[in-house]
Amino acid sequence: MSDHDHIYSTKFQDKVERSTLVMFIMTALTVAVGGIVEIVPLFYLPNTAMSGGDGTFNGTQHKDLQGNVIPMDKIVWNPATSEHKSMDDWQPGDGVRPYKPLELAGRQVFIREGCFLCHSQMIRPFRDEKDRYGHYSIAEESMYDHTYQWGSKRTGPDIARLGGKYSDEWHRKHLKYPRDVVPESVMPNFFFLENAKVDVEKTTKTMAVMTKMPFNPVPKTIYSAEYIAAAPEALKDKTEMDAVIAFLQSLGNHVKFEEGVNYRD
């Protein structure tokens, strides 16, 4: 018993071990630090593509090779300043835009089917990824992606810049029966997507939800009440297959990248 009250660490540690409450508080403080340091700055520091939803940003800016600031509306589509004013007029290269209704519906299917478990959407700045997939991804490109879909495994190839690579017809065939077009593929057959119609109500509701996000909402000028009201028309009679394909075709060609510019600094 003689040893019982001897402290082999520190007085404070001994106190912590004796008191459930102190132990609770100490662990609660200790495990809070790392997360705060790494997460909180991302909400206000520049270059993390945090938008106010009205064309303003948290100081995010990129510079061209001469050191001149590239205006943010060249990177993120802003109907107020762009020569293309509506979602339908938008052209690849006009800058990052939110998803059109059918694409948004397709994105939901993409998440539902767990595509992100095999396909990444995040090209890293390496020469081989550049050669294979294209320009490295930048923060702005996923700023409208509520529930980001970068993925952590490439069982299949990265699809961050897939848009326009294949025809819709090809995608339809490939998704239905991947081994028909790529005999070595291990991707499941998704032919059943062709049998289901897109959920119109869910999609319009999703659009409304996207405008209400506390961080990086879709601007109400883009998902305007009229635009949302017109969505059911665009979704009419579309299958889930149409939707996924629309989503896939929308990936990766929003920003016009200049050679040599550092888009991450």
Binding site: R132, K165, Y166, W170, K173, H174, K176, Y177, D180, V181, V182, P183, E184, N189, F191, E194
Partner: peptide, 29 residues
């Protein structure tokens, strides 16, 4: 492989669709 093989098959061997889900699609893409 990245641009063409999807339709023409790796090394141009072609991609024969089995027409599993639609007879119409049986044949080379």
């Amino acid at each position: 492989s990245d641009n063409c093989a999807g339709c023409h098959g790796q090394n141009g061997v072609g991609t024969f669709q089995t027409g599993k889900f639609s007879q119409r699609e049986q044949g080379y893409m």
